[in-house]
Amino acid sequence: FLGGDDPAQRLVFAKHLLSASVMAAPGAVVISKILVPQTESVDKTVKIPKERIGNNVLDAISNGATEGLKLAANVAAMLLVFVAFIAMANFILNDLIGHYLGINDWIAAQTSGRYKGLTLQFILGYSLAPLMWLIGVNIHDITLVGSLLGEKVIMTEFVGYISLANYKAAGLFFEYKSIIISTYLLCGFANFASIGIQIGGIGSLAPNQKSQLAAFGFRSLIAGTLSALFSSTIIGMITL
């Protein structure tokens, strides 16, 4: 949907998304090796209890469907909870604090209408703006791109891409290059919801590894975010 109704633009952004996906995988591996250096040999032994496999084909299908349903329900629940959390936080910031203290009108005036009031997007946009400038985003777009990264980390990349499409359609970006960088920046699963999905979803499939997943959850978020930042920086250097 980033390309709108133009088939040519849809193809362009599809290629960018494919490139971002290919670049993200090795980047995440490199960053993870830096954050958690491998000091021991990897145990490649795989042991699956027979009861998890099933006694026959029908039993295996039944077990697989049950495990898949658990994982899907966990993913849906995590997305719902985190999106609801953001909505609640924005209600408190915008409709209560910003409205009654008169901050919303000041923010709208200072940002020329880019932000309608005191929201998490506004706070994250300006907090992450210096980082966006470092990766090559135009200075006029650093707060917008910063808010997109904030949305991705707090919520999911899906919400970030929806906001990116809305900003693009509204013509809020000063430079087209910022849209391309944002496309690469949002590509990945580095968000708080993914940590919950890892612990709850994968943990239900491998209960004995749940503590390990919880221990590395936040570091995986950092690794994924750094990988996206590196990809965005590289594409920003070669995009005119």
Rank of each mutant, 00 (worst) to 15 (best):
Q38P: 02
P26D: 12
G4Q: 12
D105A: 08
W133F: 05
F85Y: 08
T156D: 01
L17C: 10
G3S: 05
A215L: 13
A89G: 04
I238V: 15
S220Q: 14
S112C: 01
L101S: 10
L149G: 04
N208C: 06
T183N: 03
A24I: 14
L148M: 10
M78L: 04
D5L: 03
A73G: 07
L186R: 09
F216Y: 07
M237S: 13
A223R: 01
I31M: 10
Y176H: 11
S112P: 01
W106H: 11
L96Y: 14
K168L: 12
E175M: 09
L172E: 14
I181P: 02
L172G: 07
S204T: 15
A223T: 08
V137D: 03
G150C: 07
D59F: 11
L131S: 00
T39D: 13
A8I: 14
L79P: 02
F230K: 05
I197C: 07
A14T: 12
A169E: 12
G3Y: 01
L134R: 09
S211Q: 15
S232A: 12
V12Y: 00
L79S: 05
K168P: 06
S220V: 04
T119W: 04
A170M: 13
A89T: 09
T183H: 05
A109C: 04
G136N: 11
T233R: 00
I31C: 04
K15H: 10
L229A: 08
V46F: 03
S182C: 14
M23L: 15
Y100W: 12
F216Q: 09
F158K: 04
L58W: 11
T156G: 08
L118R: 05
S163H: 13
S194N: 04
G113Y: 08
Q198P: 00
K44L: 03
I162Y: 11
V81Y: 10
S112D: 12
A76K: 14
G98K: 04
T183D: 02
D105G: 08
E151G: 07
P37K: 13
L149P: 10
L17T: 06
K168A: 08
I142F: 10
L134T: 12
G171C: 11
L35H: 11
E67P: 07
G196M: 06
N104P: 10
